[in-house]
Design a binder for these strands. Structure first.
Lengths: 243, 243
DNA sequence: GAATTCCGTGACAGGATCGTGACAGTCAGC
DNA sequence: GCTGACTGTCACGATCCTGTCACGGAATTC
């Protein structure tokens, strides 16, 4: 289960930036333009975390936060405040109103995501779950779920362990024997080519939507999780191009 | 397996703050006041991660980072930069010099610890990354990839093993028999001239972009990986002739 | 300069390797 | 006990790899 983040921000540019980065990090994102809209969305489907702009038209961020804290249903909802100033006085006031953390604009996407994770980990340990990512692949260890882009991918236990191992060591090539040891276990008595079959099933599941294949076959050696080569034609000398 | 973190920071207050939080998070912490002291400590007992202040008396943080990157022993050492400014230009310059991440003061302890964990997790597998280089050739053993300059070169298994052997012993000439033993294996029953064919295929793949040939043929003896002789010298260059 | 040895080049056929689909045994849940 | 999912194995075919050969040019020796 991925965590739902609700962004409350009136500037479209900032809203898109936030949404883009949070989605890339594996969160489910919703957005609202002002406090009123936010309240409606929270009532309908409460998010797991709120990112709240300090200055909002109508109901201000700080006021919205205070209201949420008063209602039992939303009192525990984690809130990250977003402000343009670095002034310490604001910082303190923000934390007093019950924000869990504070990000100042301009912010780096990485920092923001790190803070979101940190806050979620504190508030909902189960939700922040260790998240492995590679390209548009996301693997949530705690929730035991895998996503390719926005599509959830259903994997069998063996496929899941195999993908997990590959995602924990991206780019690295593993021989069939190594994979048997590490994914199947040292005492597994299985044919080497069983790995091929499982790789195939994993590929089929991951690429079911027509996405590019992220599993690279290294002939004579093994498999690796890797970015596919962009098919470029016509530049280098022909003849060696194939392969 | 506790990771060792070396803090390089001249302000005692910040140093203590960092040390306190990292120790609380379970890391082994050492500290240095300036670049010189840091270099000494790194030489004595290399840490697993470096937290580096941007501004330092004497050797600046950015300069220290650059120096570390140049030495093979410390080239893979993860570095987190610490700066007072949020300016994007600094940020980019920091990442360009080879910092793995970037934290701006003032920072939250939780964020810092989260970043340290993240960088360590990312860097661990890469630290073992065996990388052979010769001239503009790079061979990544773990990823099982070969690059000539920026172009990736696709090699068959035998070509790959042959190139690997030559890159592990550059400048050295191997006879066909030696190569058969070491690349094909002691029990290979193959014609000597098979080596020629594979050398040829290797050359074609490596020079497909029109680059100079790095495989030197020593008539009557064998092959070696070597820099090509600069063309057209009036006198005979004696040095490399013998051997 | 001629004979000889050595190496580069292209082609080719057999073989190794991998993808693919199918199948049966096992196990858990109903 | 039945059903369905999961998994290990196998056979087949396509592709890629690789060892070998013949030829000709280049270097070396006499």
């Amino acid at each position: 289960m991925t965590a739902r983040v609700l962004i409350v921000e009136d500037e479209p540019a900032v809203r898109r930036l936030l949404a883009y980065n949070l989605e890339a990090a594996g969160f489910e994102v919703a957005a609202a333009r002002d406090g009123e809209e936010a309240l409606l969305q929270i009532e309908e489907l409460p998010p797991d975390l709120l990112i709240l702009d300090w200055m909002l038209p109508g109901l201000s961020g700080i006021e919205l936060c205070r209201r949420l804290r008063r209602r039992p249903a939303t009192a525990g909802l984690p809130v990250i405040m977003l402000t343009a100033r670095v002034e310490e006085s604001d910082r303190l006031r923000g934390l007093e109103t019950g924000a869990d953390d504070y990000v100042t604009k301009p912010f780096s996407p990485a920092e923001l995501v790190a803070r979101v994770r940190a806050v979620l980990r504190r508030a909902r340990p189960a939700m922040a779950g260790e998240l492995l990512t590679f390209a548009d692949l996301r693997l949530d260890l705690l929730a035991h779920r895998v996503y390719r882009g926005h599509r959830e991918v259903a994997l069998s236990p063996t496929e899941f362990r195999l993908l997990r191992h590959l995602m924990e060591n991206p780019h690295r090539v593993f021989g069939r024997g190594q994979l048997l040891d590490r994914v199947w276990g040292l005492d597994a008595e299985v044919e080497l080519r069983t790995v091929d079959a499982t790789i195939r099933r994993l590929r089929r599941a991951l690429n079911a939507g027509g996405e590019p294949d992220l599993v690279r076959t290294v002939r004579g050696t093994g498999y690796a999780l890797d970015l596919p080569e962009p098919e470029a034609a016509g530049f280098s000398a022909p003849g060696s191009a194939g392969r």
